[in-house]
Computed example of a mutant assay.
Amino acid sequence: MKMKRRILVAALALTVVAGGAGAAWYYTQRPGGKPAPVQPEAVDYKYVSLEKVIVMLRDGTGSSVPHYLAMDLVFKTSGKQEKITKEHLPLLRSVALKALADYPVEKANRMSIDQFAVALNQAFTAAYARDHAEKPFAEAMIGKLIIE
């Protein structure tokens, strides 16, 4: 009886050691000795357009010549939230107008497209935070920008 128990314990120990050795071998065969990364589920993004956001820019020089900024926006959203993003387009236009209306023409002329995108994304995030709501899009991008 004791002999059978010893053989059983030895077989169990050997199985555990062999399993550990096999796992160690597998991990060392991978680049960097790390397990394969878990791939996140790919999001099927949709793009919703908001065209012709037009803002009159302030002119600090006192000139009577009006200056305008015209912009087309594109919202990157998931397929599940595409409809909600489309329903929010009037709100998004209003937030963009409010964010851009205070820019003087001199500053707007010096800004890059990336700087405008950052400013708008911050304005959208702040607006949704004030309303205690989740943004229905991942990012706002600029499709067209004209400053006259």
Rank of each mutant, 00 (worst) to 15 (best):
P31M: 01
Y128I: 07
G79K: 02
K135V: 07
L57K: 06
K4T: 11
A11W: 05
E148I: 11
S78N: 09
L92A: 02
P90K: 09
Q115C: 05
K83F: 10
A117T: 11
Y47D: 03
M141G: 06
L73Y: 03
Q29Y: 04
L73T: 06
V118K: 05
T85R: 01
V53P: 13
K34L: 14
A11V: 12
K2C: 08
V53E: 10
V74P: 04
P37N: 03
L92V: 04
S63R: 10
V48T: 13
L100I: 10
Q122S: 13
R6N: 09
I142E: 06
V65H: 04
K2N: 15
A24H: 09
A133C: 07
L100N: 09
P40V: 08
Y26V: 13
E139Q: 10
T77V: 02
Y103L: 15
K98D: 13
L50V: 08
A36D: 14
H88R: 12
G22E: 01
A140Q: 04
P104I: 11
E148F: 10
K144Q: 10
A23R: 09
G19M: 06
I113N: 07
S63D: 13
G62Q: 09
P40G: 11
S94H: 12
D72R: 11
K2G: 15
P35F: 09
V74A: 08
F124E: 03
A108I: 07
R5P: 01
V65K: 13
M111D: 12
Q39L: 15
E82D: 02
A11S: 12
E51P: 00
P40N: 09
P37M: 03
T85D: 01
S49P: 14
N109H: 01
V38R: 11
K83A: 12
L100C: 04
R58Q: 14
I147L: 11
V16L: 15
A21D: 06
R58K: 14
V38F: 12
E41R: 13
S94Y: 14
V43G: 04
A42E: 12
A101E: 13
T77P: 00
Y103A: 04
Y103T: 03
L100A: 10
V48N: 07
A108M: 05
A11P: 05
P90T: 08
G62E: 10
K4D: 08
K2E: 15
I147K: 00
R30N: 12
Q39T: 15
L100V: 05
T125D: 15
Y68I: 05
E51G: 12
V38T: 14
L145K: 04
M56T: 14
I113E: 12
M111F: 05
L14Y: 03
K2T: 14
A21R: 10
P136L: 01
D59K: 04
D44F: 03
K34Q: 15
K135S: 04
A123V: 07
P35W: 11
T125C: 02
M71Q: 05
H88F: 06
V53M: 10
N121I: 02
T15K: 10
Y103H: 09
E134I: 06
